[in-house]
Design a protein around this nucleic acid. Structure first.
Length: 584
RNA sequence: GCUGGAAUAGCGCAGUCGGUAGCGCAACUGAUUCGUAAUCAGUAGGUCGAGGGUUCGAGUCCCUUUUCCAGCUCCA
């Protein structure tokens, strides 16, 4: 069973197990709140749920709270655990509940109370002197919480609305024993070593500089990766009946007015003027694709017409949201627009979903699916939205793909299916998406001649598989922890010479491998072999070839694999055979 | 954008009470010519993110600002 946690992450888990863990974490959140109230009685409490790997509690402190305060709270929490307080549940009617919360001067609880339906009994939990309005469930005694840790402090808007006051959120986690806590913290540390920003720097893949916040620079090895992903993508699309185009990154204001972007997406667009006319740099590729569609009369016989475009797009994302390659201001979307008849909708959506599954399986990614519905700031009629949303739903049902619904999270022109991937510490990122759009064809007055000889309006799908190549690459780096499969490795083989005496032979090997199309480097420094191996390993090079006297004499190489270690001595043909089998 | 933190050599970091900016790795030079995760010695490298202020004196204290980190909001 899939469970969507309050922090947005999706977990596969047995329901009872999940409930038990949640009750446990939720109780720890109560202990946290009780400790805070003891230490700083003026603090107002908001909410404190359990989340995927722990819990949080939102407070409104009467003073400037910082991480330095966490240790004194932890000390107080330990006391509460030791006191072994019982958590007693009781119900109260609305009036009584209101009275209790007013006595305790808890404005956030009062606000929540006001929103609860009339006549409903309200649940409370009491532990020692601390009273919390809460539906539960909880564990029975505070002493059950044997191991916990407060992890970080952050701001969070009251009720998740940026118009509201920002509260102070304390994150923590708890476990039934110290070993489990230590193991969790250790796992977190290990995961941080896979961070694509750290690996990107260590492996020389990309860099983000102060001169261009959110605008990544690709370094030689990173660009090899990016280009390899593109090669893979192009081959796949050629096979799937797509034609590729490329449209300008800058187009005039009128076009963006027609598409609706000027009105609905303007705050994220970079604009400029040319010869006195307004222009915008594209935040999406669809309007350009639309113009290509409209170039000449189209027939139903050409449908489904699948037009792909690796679009370089720019979006002025808010500064605080930037995150390595995962969230940038400039990226390459592996876009495609499919024009079709209404009858072709189901098959096309299913075809794209299958493609996405194929791509993600190739890299060994697991993903979850969300259906995002009509947002507030949208264009188009209710009927169109319903038709489009049902179209996506039916396709998902047909495919038997489990999904969660994300109300109001669709694009302004249509609903979408989103495919989410996880990074090394469990944050999820939207990558693939399939969007059904009735609006753009109308706005651009796109047409095709049907079987009946009359003009009709085509249906349009926008879709990406990677999402953005940058984000996908970020996920990829973390997924493999920098140890890319052979076919993706920026350097596939490194030749390590034992001393200068064998450099000529080492160069000969390097040349042979390069002629075979392998990405190969030679380490000919006057260093010991152990040191060269160490360097190559840190670079995560899949194969190391050691060449010295023995190899030069027998015209062979001694092979070391990144993980498997020594593979022994072999002729170069044998090595090539191994590499081909693995896939180059 | 919001809340809280951080910024010192290419990278990873130390720098106490405000009193001469340091360590390791990398780089460079020289020696070593070596058999599976670090050979030895030496050299060079800094407007301490930027701008202002307090002070006899600021990496250190204060203000402004930029970027980054965690989370929120938003999103591919």
């Amino acid at each position: 069973m899939k469970i969507k946690m309050k922090d947005g992450s999706i977990r596969e888990a047995a329901f009872e197990e999940e409930l038990g863990k949640n009750a446990f974490r939720h109780t720890t959140a109560h202990i946290l709140a009780q400790a805070v109230k003891r230490l700083y009685p003026d603090t107002k409490c908001a909410i404190g749920p359990s989340i995927a790997d722990g819990f949080y509690y939102d407070f409104d402190f009467a003073f400037q709270f910082s991480e330095e305060n966490l240790s004194e709270i932890e000390a107080e929490m330990k006391k509460i655990v030791k006191e072994n307080l019982q958590l007693r549940q009781f119900a109260a009617d609305r009036e009584k509940a209101m009275q209790m919360m007013e006595e305790r001067k808890e404005p956030y609880k009062i606000e929540m109370l006001k929103d609860l339906p009339e006549g409903e009994e309200i649940s409370f939990y009491q532990q020692g002197e601390y009273l919390e309005m809460c539906a539960g469930p909880h564990v029975a005694y505070t002493s059950a919480v044997k191991a916990f840790k407060l992890l970080s402090v952050a701001g969070a808007y009251w009720r998740g609305d940026e118009k509201n006051k920002m509260l102070t959120r304390i994150y923590g986690t708890s476990f039934p024993n110290e070993d489990m806590l230590a193991e969790y913290l250790n796992r977190l540390e290990e995961a941080k070593k896979r961070d694509h920003r750290k690996l990107g720097k260590e492996l020389g893949l990309f860099v983000l500089l102060e001169e261009g916040p959110g605008f990544p620079f690709f370094l030689p090895k990173g660009l090899i990766l990016k280009n390899l992903l593109i090669d893979y993508w192009r081959k796949m699309h050629a096979k799937e009946g797509y034609v590729e185009i490329s449209t300008p990154i800058m187009l005039n204001r009128q076009l963006w007015e027609t598409s609706g972007h000027w009105e609905h997406y303007r705050d994220k667009m970079y604009t400029t003027s040319i010869d006195g006319a307004d222009f915008a740099i594209k935040p999406m590729s669809c309007p350009g694709g639309m113009l290509v569609y409209k170039m000449e009369p189209r027939s139903y016989r050409e449908f489904p017409m699948r037009i792909s475009e690796l679009g370089l797009i720019h979006r002025n994302e808010a500064s605080g949201t930037l995150h390595g390659l995962m969230r940038v201001r400039c990226c390459t979307q592996d876009d495609a627009h499919i024009f079709m008849t209404p009858e072709q909708i189901q098959d096309e959506i299913k075809g794209v979903a299958r493609l996405i599954d194929e791509v993600y399986s190739t890299f060994g990614f697991s993903y979850h699916v969300e259906l995002s519905t009509r947002p507030e700031n949208s264009i188009g009629s209710d009927a169109d939205w319903e038709l489009a949303t049902n179209g996506l739903k039916n396709a998902l049902d047909d495919l038997k793909l489990p999904y969660v619904v994300n109300e109001g999270d669709g694009a302004f022109y249509g609903p979408k299916i989103d495919f989410h991937l996880e990074d090394s510490i469990g944050r999820t990122w939207q990558c693939g998406t399939i969007q059904l759009d009735f609006q753009l064809p109308q706005r651009f007055e796109a047409e095709y001649i049907g079987e009946d000889g009359n003009k009709h309006r085509p249906i349009m799908i926008h879709r990406v598989l990677f999402g953005s190549i940058e984000r996908f690459l970020g996920i990829l780096i973390e997924h493999y922890a920098g140890k890319f499969p052979l076919w993706l490795s920026p350097v596939q083989v490194k030749v390590l010479s034992l001393s200068d005496k064998y450099i000529d032979y080492a160069k000969e090997i390097e040349q042979t491998l390069k002629m075979e199309g392998l990405r190969c480097e030679l380490d000919a420094r006057a260093e010991k072999i152990g040191y060269k191996i160490r360097t190559a390993r840190l670079e995560r090079v899949p194969y190391m070839l050691i060449v010295g006297e023995k190899e030069a004499e027998t015209k062979s190489v001694s092979v070391r694999e990144r993980d498997a270690g020594d593979l022994g001595n072999m002729p170069i043909e044998k090595l090539l055979e191994i590499l081909r089998e693995e896939g180059i």
